[in-house]
Simulated assay, not measured.
Amino acid sequence: MDAVAHVKEPAAVRLAAPAAWDAEADDALVCRAVRAETHDVKTFVFAAREPRRFSHQPGQFLTFAFEIAGETVHRCYTISSAPTRPDTVAITVKRVPGGPVSNWLHDTVKPGSMVRAVGPMGDFSCFAHPAPKYLLLSGGSGVTPMMAMARTFHDLAEPRDVAFVHSARTPADIVFRDELERMAALDESFRFTAVCEGDGPGEAWGGFRGRLTLPMLELIAPDWRAREVFVCGPAPYMAAVKAMLAGAGFDMARHHEESFDFEALSVADTEAVEAAEAELDAAPTVRTFRVEFAKTKRAIDCPEDQTVLDVARKQGVRLPSSCSKGLCGTCKSKLISGTVAMTHAGGIRQREIDAGMALLCCSKPTSDLVVDR
């Protein structure tokens, strides 16, 4: 019998899990995928260590604790994925020149990497302000909460009239461009318009050019005064949009904005972030070690409180195994380097242990490992 034939498909296991993710019980998230959106923007897709479902409102954010150069650094990132796809949660990050966190994320975080987060938090969401018509205005990285909202309505096939206007430097800087244009082609109630300051490499921009203005908005969405308006982007962009709307006599009670500046957050959000950071700092730190498989050229990040086999399975690395109790010896492997804490049930002999062998089903890493698999 094939030693791995009884192993369930990991995707099926995740989809069958009814439990909700609870950061208080386990704040660790495992990176499942990294996707390049533009030349300097990446999306990082995370899942819980154990199969869990995420619940959030489109537009909310998570507070992360990243371990960078021996220090814990906190950052808030808006969730760019939709709650309609609850098995993973994603953030989309622009690389900022000299930015310690964005550069660390772009250069370091890969599938298998582990981070810590709590949340979701925030009241910047279309769910908090239901309306038949929406106007989503974003600039630069401010596209992320708008994308979560747009994706949610699209997935639910909600009969909502949504006008999405995104401002970017060049066509090459339009984040999610292909997806947004595809959504607009499929759904007549969803309209996407980009406004670019100039041409991009290899593409002369033929759409609206410059900065968003009231005459532009009148052409894009003539009924914009009848819409619930959400705005997100750099502080100068949001200030300009707010002044433009107020100057045109818009009912500012239907104007909602979100800031990436911690100091500009609402009192409620500021208090929530401070509580989240305290929660992350108070949580016991579980060390994570890098496990490399020499023959398959795969690598995973394995917490010290989990076995190598369990983590490898969850991250799609196929390894021979049978009993998973340290009894049969099927998962016996050579450790090229590193050490483990192993509690077996007789499936390995002392002379094999002395020769550097280990049972991966009952071995927890105590250092970085290289395994001959």
Rank of each mutant, 00 (worst) to 15 (best):
A235C: 02
D261H: 05
S266E: 14
F262P: 01
K242F: 06
A226R: 05
K242N: 14
P236M: 10
A248L: 05
H256N: 03
F262D: 09
D261T: 13
G233A: 09
G249V: 07
A235H: 09
P236S: 11
E258A: 13
L265T: 13
S266P: 05
P236T: 10
G233R: 05
A246N: 02
F250C: 01
H255N: 04
D269L: 01
V229G: 00
G249L: 06
A272K: 06
F262H: 08
A239R: 12
D261P: 01
V273F: 02
F250G: 00
Y237G: 05
D269G: 01
A239I: 09
A248K: 03
A246M: 01
P234S: 14
G233L: 09
M244P: 11
V241I: 15
L265I: 11
M252E: 01
D251H: 06
G247M: 07
T270R: 05
G247F: 03
M252K: 01
M252S: 05
A253K: 10
A272E: 15
F262K: 06
A248G: 03
R227M: 00
A264M: 13
A253G: 10
C232E: 08
G247D: 11
D269A: 01
V267T: 15
H255T: 12
A243Q: 14
A264L: 14
G249M: 03
A240N: 13
E263S: 12
E258F: 02
S266H: 12
F262V: 06
A264G: 04
V241T: 14
F260M: 06
V229D: 00
A268Y: 05
H255D: 00
R254K: 13
V229Q: 00
M252V: 07
K242T: 14
V229P: 01
F262M: 10
